[in-house]
Structures are given as C-alpha cells and as structure tokens.
C-alpha cells in the first residue's frame, strides 16, 4: 500500500503539472481538492484519465470521483479494491 501511495503521488504530480511540488509535499490523508492542493474540475478529469491510462480503471460517472479522489489514500484504496475485484 505504501509503495502504491508513493507511486501515485509521483503520478499525480506529473499528470497535473504540479511542477514545483515533490512527493514529500503531498499529505497522504489531506483533501486533494478545495484548500489541499488547490485542484479544480479539470484536475479531477485528469485524475480519471490517470486511473484509466495507468491502472486500466474506467470511472464512468464524474460524480463518483468525489469520494475516490478525496485524498491520495482513498485513491490508493480504490485502485487496490478494483484490482482485487
């Protein structure tokens, strides 16, 4: 799980062009949206693309993203649950 979280952080930084951030700057449990990293609706869509491209997971309903993308941990848990299923 920890390895997945670390990998995800790197992928998020790359996918969302968070050029001045390092994985150490991202708190695993902090909310990604709103105050957290200051992400917006386009970033949410980019995270959906990230899930599909890197993990083969298709998220059809953008509204479902709210829970999945709450924090890096919830994202990692979601990926793991989908991969086990």
């Amino acid at each position: 799980m920890d390895a997945l979280i670390e990998k995800l952080k790197g992928e998020i930084i790359q996918q969302l062009n968070l050029e001045e951030m390092t994985t150490a700057d991202i708190d695993t449990d902090a909310p990604l949206f709103m105050e957290g990293l200051g992400l917006d609706s386009i970033d949410a869509l980019e995270l959906i693309v990230l899930l599909e491209r890197n993990y083969g997971i298709k998220l059809e309903d953008p509204k479902a993203g709210k829970d999945v993308f709450h924090s890096v941990r919830t994202m990692a848990e979601y990926i793991q649950s989908r991969q086990e299923a």
Binding site: L16, N17, I42, D43, L45, E46, V49, E52, R53
Partner: peptide, 11 residues
C-alpha cells in the same frame, strides 16, 4: 489502440 484525450490539453 487507446485514444485517450486529456481534458487539460483539450481546454
């Protein structure tokens, strides 16, 4: 194989 547009590019 996998046409996957990026919303952040399209905007």
């Amino acid at each position: 194989v996998n046409p996957l547009p990026s919303p952040a590019v399209f905007v």
